[in-house]
Amino acid sequence: MSAWKKHEIFEKNSLILTIGIVVMISIGGLVEIVPLYYLKSTIEETEGMRPYTPLELAGRNIYVREGCYTCHSQQIRPLRDELERYGPYSLAAESMYDRPFQWGSKRTGPDLARVGGKYSDEWHRDHLINPRSVSPTSVMPGYPFLAENKLDTRDIREHLELNAVYGVPYTEEQIQYARADLVAQANPDRGDIDGFEERYPGVAARAFDGDPSDVTEMDALVAYLQMLGTLVDFELYDNNANLR
């Protein structure tokens, strides 16, 4: 009975109760969250991860702006049926440059973590403009304005800078030439494609919206969708070294 008596201190003093709650939650946080920052095993060793190009980053911002994550997850769970349908399960390393991550929790539509390369640019354009044109029973809304809206590139450099503050390893050059690189990736014939290829080796550059005349929001979103899940080289990735 005496232990219960001691507990009365909390029950009868709201301030002490508040302090008690804060202490308990802090312990939970220390044990569950803090180790993720220092444990090496949190993030797998992979080959191929790189930060987003400016165009992909702009596309990602549109993905967030339009709320695509409300219907699409980007997280293939380690379950057999998901592996069979979507491919290798998602690794923590694959979202290490995502601020914030787009794992999502709702699948009205399919998971998009490995959609890169699955369809053609043209299909993505048709589908985003009017999903019913290729998937007659789709409940996904159309986004026809993406093909018309010119991409706002004024603050792309700041977006890279902010990501760098959070620890995304953009080089000074990449930040300095952010806008030029964005244009070059969507418009290789007009922009400084050599500079882009030097700063982002091996990254695909083309008119993602099918129209090389200007850079639209469609260019950015399709560039983003086409790289999703394609970075990690699973031929080199060692499953057994990264069991969790």
């Binding site: 180790p35 444990l39 090496k40 095993s41 380690p78 379950l79 057999r80 592996l83 399960y89 499953n239 990264n242 069991l243 969790r244």
Partner: peptide, 16 residues
């Protein structure tokens, strides 16, 4: 530098 992995050696990734 690590975590306790438990006597059962459970790993969701190994299972899948």
């Amino acid at each position: 530098s690590d975590y306790t992995s438990g006597l059962l050696g459970h790993s969701q990734r190994a299972n899948v």
